[in-house]
């Protein structure tokens, strides 16, 4: 029973380290997510500029229904970038191979010792540190993307309403939409951002615990060899 409990404890440790691997995968996907999002935002802005230039020469593009459809399509580009990027990150995180240690652990205490001796502590500490920042950055980037999309949507559709239907031009309306976008997204995403902050604290705590444990393990290993 004592042996089984010891083996189960190592299993718990390894499950936590598997989780750390997922954070590492997230940090890898984060760069691609940021690039994809940046490219789609640039693509959106280029499309909008192109539409404006073409609208000067072609009056058909100035019709509200056509303008609405074009705005919607260009918005879908950014939305596609966000959804595609998020799916890419999720796929990377889910594709992490975990539980390879279970076979060793089935050998009991010797297997548990093998697992402990094969852990690369320094790499694990780096993974935790990078993962801690990445998961928070991912949340922030996603929130920024929501803000940008909401701002683009409000700005596009309000201009259709104001210019094409009411025939008025209100200056600095963009500032109002920027404020609305930031406030709305912060209100909706505050729970997610808070969860990510708490997760970062949990990873800090895990790092502290594992540093202590790795020191104790090295000490025990040296005393055994002596």
């Amino acid at each position: 029973m004592k042996e089984e409990s010891a083996v189960a404890k190592v299993g718990e440790l390894m499950s936590a380290l598997d989780q750390v691997k997922r954070y590492k995968a997230l940090s890898k996907g984060l760069k691609q997510f940021a690039v994809l999002l940046g490219c789609t935002i640039i693509a959106y802005l280029l499309i909008r500029v192109l539409i404006s230039i073409l609208a000067l020469e072609n009056s058909v593009l100035n019709q509200p229904s056509i303008f609405f459809a074009l705005s919607l399509i260009s918005l879908l580009v950014v939305l596609g970038g966000l959804v595609g990027g998020a799916l890419l990150v999720r796929r990377k995180v889910n594709s992490v191979a975990v539980g390879a240690w279970r076979e060793d652990l089935s050998q009991g205490v010797p297997g548990a010792l093998r697992i402990l001796s094969e852990i690369n502590w320094e790499a694990t500490f780096d993974e935790i540190s990078v993962g801690r920042i990445s998961q928070l950055l991912y949340g922030i980037l996603k929130s920024i993307a929501y803000m940008v999309i909401l701002f683009f949507a409000l700005e596009s559709f309000s201009s259709i309403l104001l210019i094409h239907f009411l025939g008025v031009r209100i200056f600095f309306v963009g500032v109002l939409w920027a404020f609305v976008s930031v406030s709305a997204v912060l209100a909706l995403q505050s729970g997610d951002l808070l969860r990510r902050y708490k997760e970062g604290r949990s990873l800090d705590f895990l790092l502290y615990e594992l540093r202590w444990f790795s020191n104790e393990y090295r000490r025990a290993e040296s005393s055994f060899e002596a």
Binding site: L13, R22, V109, L113, F213
Partner: peptide
């Protein structure tokens, strides 16, 4: 010695506290 190894795992790995972590994404 073997019992000592088991005891060591119980004592040190057992003392570790693992925080609840999310799915990553």
């Amino acid at each position: 010695t073997y019992d000592g190894l088991v005891k060591w795992i119980m004592e040190y790995v057992g003392r570790l506290r693992f925080p609840k972590l999310g799915s990553g994404a």
